[in-house]
Design a protein around this nucleic acid. Structure first.
Ligand SMILES: [Mn+2]
Ligand SMILES: [Mn+2]
Ligand SMILES: [Zn+2]
Ligand SMILES: [Zn+2]
Lengths: 143, 143
DNA sequence: TTTCGAATTAGAATAATTCCAAATTCCGGC
DNA sequence: GCCGGAATTTGGAATTATTCTAATTCGAAA
């Protein structure tokens, strides 16, 4: 799990032929490249439209297939905010999402050093957390 | 905002005619009563099926209308977990949701005394939080 | 009792996502 | 390079939660 995050500049055809055990097809490379380039949490449809620039024949079904493959291999994260369509995020480090109400933009937010969920939640003994989602809405400060 | 939460036992027809500025119609009472009685975070369709017991003529559209009215008047909370259908929760106090992966049940989880989100998140100066969602998945301990 | 805006209703419409079955591509072995 | 089977892609249909529409009914107040 080399931080693909840094591969913003890498051309899709230069991606390794296998990432996290997932065979990288032409379409999967393109979808991944889009998500790494514009890190603005695009929806499947956003990805579709952007991928079409360099690959006019790609289909929406394929974009969904690719996204599902990338997500299930932990190459990108699926971000769900309330009832909106899913968005996709290349930031694999622990973080949550803040949706700015004036701009609509979604910002990554990290936890302060050394904070553990168990420290702040009243959880019964023996609880094991396998998945966690935190999302916020409001006015995002100067940043 | 008298804790309606405690009105589990109240019959729908005994609800006040106005709650939080919302006129309580027959259907709204019934929907609210269902949510207060079985506090298991039912979906709109769950609510619909349960409401039909005492009100066989209620329609699904009406259930959606009632839920939207109750939510927007802060009488019940809408709970969204990933891509699943919305669920409805009568607990208005600050809490988050833990979905137990073996039972599927959704548990309310409260924050430990005196925890503030600002304390644990790296937020830029001037940020104002208007809405917050935390949800967890995993194995919920003995409780 | 009449009135009139609000609420309810059935059914159609919407939209994100998934499914399907056929066509294409990929890959390892010959 | 060529073949066969498996994986992937594709366009279109299907699904499904939710919203919309337009007609009907309700109910509080006069
Ligand atoms: Mn929310
Ligand atoms: Mn999630
Ligand atoms: Zn993110
Ligand atoms: Zn709850």
């Amino acid at each position: 799990m080399i931080p693909l995050a840094n591969k913003k500049d890498l051309k899709p055809e230069d991606f390794p032929s296998d990432i996290e055990g997932l065979r990288m097809t032409r379409q999967r490379r393109e979808v991944l490249a889009v998500i790494l380039r514009d890190r603005d949490h695009p929806t499947a449809n956003d990805v579709f439209r952007r991928a079409q620039d360099r690959m006019p024949t790609i289909s929406l079904a394929t974009v969904y297939n690719c996204l599902e493959a990338l997500v299930s291999h932990n190459i990108v994260r699926q971000v769900n905010l309330d009832r909106e369509s899913s968005r996709y995020c290349p930031n694999l480090s622990d973080h949550c999402h803040f949706q700015d109400e004036s701009s609509g933009k979604i910002h990554d937010v990290v936890f302060k050093e050394g904070v553990k969920l168990e420290d702040i939640l009243e959880l019964p003994k023996g609880t094991e957390i396998s998945h966690l989602d935190i999302s916020l809405k409001g006015n995002f400060g100067n940043k």
